[in-house]
Amino acid sequence: MLILQGFYWNCLDDWWEEISSIADEIAVKGFDTVWLPPPSRGMNGKNSMGYDIKEHYNLNSKFGNKKTLKKLIKRLHHNEVKVMADLVLGHMLGGDKEWNPHFEEKTFTRFAEADFPKNHQHFCHECGDCSSRNSFGETICYYSDDEYMKNELINWARWLKNEIGFDSFRLDNLKDMRWDFAKEFADHFRDNTFMVGEYWHGDDRILEEFIDHSQINLFNFPLYYSIKEMCMDPFFPVQSLEGISKKNKVNFLSNHDIERDERDFNRDAIITNKELGYAYILFQDNPAVIYWNDYFKYDLKDKLDELINLRRNSEDQPLEIVTLNDDIYHARRGRYNLIINNAYDDYYYSGLTVNGRDYEIFVQD
């Protein structure tokens, strides 16, 4: 599975039409899934990226409307490309003020959306039964009021699939959500819907605990942080990458949050030798994400096309490690070989020279 993250922070208005105009190219290049930003209307309306969700069933946003979204999905489906919805399930913003008896004060917890109304009963009461309170907007309480929010969020996601046409889900900010809800939500879709969650944590053990509990795939943040070190440090031991768990993980090297500001000024961003990281993740068995800016903005497009073709041509062969040490990662799939040299010095293999801080692809006869 090769996913194109089909947006960046503060991307253009009418974004559905923008992507629709290049749907053919996306398919030809080898992407089988496009991950779209949250489609529902946010508190900031036309200035919203959708993570400040206010009206679940209102698809009028800076990106377009229900009609242009369905047109985009139909265009991608025509090209045999699936579409991933970004679901914000943990919080809401922009409600009207109402008296909240739980806190004996007014709170912004009244959301009058006709198809999915909410009030103070449906948000965090700080009752002590969970530890999922977050500071971004109103934290959803899934199990109060006869599990109203749990059931209606599931119905909303089902509507996005059945009515709008989404194929898969990206689950936002699982770190600040109840684990039991995440599992219950996933149980309703796991038979026919690919899901990947954002649990932003660098500790592999914590991610494995969540995966074991919920059976939800997660973005591989521990691998991301290690690859960042490799790309920016020639003394990083490459062999340590193989010690990070890959089970139920989706590999990536950037996203809209990591590069919310200009790349070179963001402490989390990989700003040098990023192609080394893409060479590694695109040769793995795991699903992989290519970030929009890496493909369409920076000078990586040609190298990414080459690596995508390598992935497509070799994916039906098992991955074998030929050489693995602090400097060299040499793996093969059938006739296709990838050598990553993270050291400053050149590396020589069977008449082939791999320059320092570079990689080579070769096909054995």
Results as ranks from 00 to 15, higher is better:
A279I: 09
G197W: 02
K106D: 09
T139C: 08
A186S: 15
A85M: 14
V88R: 03
E163C: 03
Y298I: 08
Y347Q: 04
N217P: 00
V83Y: 00
V196I: 15
R41Q: 14
E138A: 12
N248T: 08
M43G: 02
E163G: 04
P117D: 13
Y298H: 15
L207R: 05
K82R: 12
Y57D: 04
D187P: 01
H102D: 10
D13M: 09
S131A: 15
N309Y: 06
E25H: 06
F194M: 11
P287K: 13
N255R: 01
N251F: 11
I258P: 01
K161T: 06
N220D: 10
I258K: 00
G351K: 04
V238C: 14
E315T: 09
D345P: 02
P222G: 07
Y57H: 05
V322N: 11
D365F: 06
D257T: 11
R190A: 09
K71F: 07
E105D: 14
I328N: 03
L352T: 14
I271M: 09
L160Q: 09
E80P: 00
Q215A: 07
C130D: 13
L223G: 00
N58A: 10
M1K: 01
E98C: 07
A27E: 08
H201F: 12
D96N: 10
F210Y: 13
L4H: 00
Q317T: 07
R267Y: 10
D32C: 04
N273C: 06
E147I: 02
D115H: 12
L338S: 02
A182R: 03
D187L: 11
R133P: 05
M195L: 12
Y8A: 10
W15Q: 03
L76D: 00
I26G: 01
I339V: 14
G197R: 04
